[in-house]
Design a binder for these strands. Structure first.
Lengths: 383, 383
DNA sequence: CCCGCATCTGACAACGTTGTCCAGGCTCTA
DNA sequence: TAGAGCCTGGACAACGTTGTCAGATGCGGG
């Protein structure tokens, strides 16, 4: 059934197995450029493509009709007698024919698919976002192709360009990098593009983000309102836009309250649990420990919750991003929640409005956050 | 830049806007058949495809070389002088050319993409699974197209067939339905296929599942070992294979202990939080309430944890599937954990081995589960 | 000077589908 | 029954790419 001698190496093999004379492609070109494939293996056995899938021609031959008639039946176009249609449908069923959308795309110019590039599919924040995008795409008859950038700008670009090469009709991108000029030719060529969660860099495009600054400011102000003055902040690298905004919100709230932030209260750029744990413990130790912590994202929050569970209770906590079961912990975890699904839905809807042509100038949309009080953020200062 | 008069309706428009004479396609054909598109709108403005993207021909003209030479440069094939390559590369950069993979696919027969059909991308169980599949795909140079079936067999089939029409090289499917004969022509045509989490129906294919039966049996036996005899079971519809297997495990453990299961101890097919809540409350009420509950999946577990938190403590709980922060609750939630990432990784690796041709007969792989004791499952019976 | 050889280049067909266009047969009317 | 008009069906080109193959060029040796 399967050709046991061939090996899987899609889109990469060249005709001669002879590599002697291959030039190593120069990489010193600037800007937008084609990166040649790098892997080379033995050429595949020729022929036998798609495992010899039947084509419309085969169906036509079997049904004793013309090619175009089959096409008409397959696409439900008018102009075929019931009798002819029956014959064609019979041939289709008998042969197990399935239309080849690659060829269709080539002809029609639309792929009915959109690309989604996010940071990590496994992150619970992106699940609902991804699903929301999918639902909107589905409503518009489009499929979703997605990939994780793993927070690596190069990988983001690689992914985005691969999607463009497949001629996705549109792109929803959660940027990892901060320079998206590489997308200019694509946008010019008509690829609808929306950036989500973080703004695009160096390019004018639609952006859908949460109010990271306002959310963080409100969250920290909430702690201040409950009497805290020494408030710690643990967040991601400030080169990530959301992290920077939330840090800015923290600073703004502190400044509004006339509090001078100590350097030892802030931990930036640590995300792996072990180092977050150490950062939190340091803040909570010493002669003048923080009495509250504001955490910059869901992963940090989870770790800090663990740390606080081990320490003598007392330190208050407000986290950015909601986490599951937060209401069941004692105390419940107060969070600044953003609506991941709404981000995805809004972005996707804008994308399809671009494709409809009902959208003109790029815009920046900011969705509000919501402070959810559950207990941990309402604890009074212990010291 | 964008044509403001066109509307987005990919792959669906027919030439005449005239619908008068359209036959409604008969649907009484059995088995595998082509479903014609159903939506019809005004025809798009012709021409201007891809927003006039440059093609290799354009690049060739600009660089003053032949078509094939451009192809050679783009694909890093040998046999081009550095000078010629420079000129071509310059033209590519100037025009913002990007290879059209649709055409490439049409020519080469491989799409370098695999499809993943799962139940719900937003479910935290599928995030890591999906990510794992993606990583393996990436290692093999393939992209991931995925869709959610929402537990609807018809939608599953629709999705799978759409992916096949796009000629994905392989499919990883988490089945919603129990009859996959519709895939026969595809498998025969060489589409590699692996089913995950639940077995395929009516078709001989690779399957990767967790040991749902054994895991559930062990979990329930764990409760029995801690002195429980009246143990409730709340699970999903038994038509879902995993749910049926876990129920079977529950029954087996009870039988092994010589306990006769009462009908009122079991709640099958309820998943929405409200009804799960009611089911749990009923089990916990009455003259002879259950002293422990075994929950059939993560969503049910979460709801039952909420219910138990409100009730006078005492009922023990073991849940199938791990949940985040389970260790921080008081008591911690004891679970039968399955490794979602391992499921995805194993399935994807098998898929690519099929594509390599190094795999012969379809096989069923069962991954072990792990009992994680955290407290809730070790509580003694209260009554 | 011519031949052989190696290297580089380009013309051309093919991949499977859809849009265009025309032909042939039918019905309906005058 | 002829002519007009409609309905059905099919031949053909085109979409953008890659594989095949043959032509062009340059070089060294006889």
């Amino acid at each position: 059934m399967l050709d046991a001698t061939s090996s899987y190496n899609p889109m990469t093999d060249t005709s001669p197995a002879d590599n002697r004379s291959r030039r190593t492609p120069v990489d010193d070109m600037t800007g937008h450029r084609i990166v040649p494939d790098t892997t080379r293996r033995a050429a595949r056995t020729p022929g036998n493509r798609y495992g010899n899938r039947p084509t419309m021609k085969d169906v036509a031959a079997r049904a004793g009709v013309g090619l175009k008639t089959v096409s008409r039946v397959v696409n439900g176009e008018p102009g075929v007698t019931p009798e002819t249609e029956r014959r064609v449908q019979e041939a289709i069923d008998a042969l197990g024919f399935r239309r080849n959308d690659s060829a269709r795309v080539l002809r029609k110019g639309r792929t009915a698919s959109i690309g989604l590039v996010l940071e990590d599919l496994a992150d619970p924040f992106y699940g609902p976002l991804s699903r929301a995008v999918e639902e909107v795409a589905r409503a518009h008859g489009a499929l979703l192709i997605n990939g994780s950038s793993a927070e690596d700008p190069e990988r983001e670009q690689e992914l985005v360009l691969a999607l463009c090469a497949r001629r996705v009709d549109g792109l929803v991108v959660i940027p990892a990098g901060d320079d998206h000029r590489y997308l200019e030719p694509e946008v010019k060529a008509g690829v609808a593009t929306v950036f989500v969660d973080r703004p695009a860099g160096q390019i004018d495009a639609d952006v859908v983000v949460s109010d990271n600054f306002g959310g963080a400011r409100d969250g920290v102000a909430h702690l201040i309102a409950h009497g805290h003055r020494r408030i710690g902040f643990i967040g991601d690298m400030p080169r990530i836009h959301t992290a920077a905004e939330r840090l800015r919100g923290y600073r703004a709230a502190m400044e509004d309250a006339g509090i001078t932030v100590q350097g030892s209260w802030m931990s930036l750029g640590v995300t792996d649990p072990e180092r977050v744990r150490r950062a939190a413990e340091e803040m909570l130790a010493g002669p003048r420990p923080v009495t509250a912590i504001f955490t910059g994202n869901n992963r940090v929050t989870v770790t800090v919750v663990r740390v606080l569970a081990e320490h003598p209770p007392g330190a208050a906590l407000v986290g950015f991003d909601d986490i599951e079961l937060a209401d069941l912990l004692r105390p419940g975890v107060t969070v600044v929640a953003q609506d991941a699904a709404a981000l995805g839905r809004t972005a996707a809807e804008r994308l399809f409005r671009q494709l409809d042509g009902t959208l003109l100038a790029p815009e920046r949309i900011e969705l509000p956050t919501r402070l959810v009080t559950r207990g941990s953020g309402e604890l009074p200062p212990a010291h």
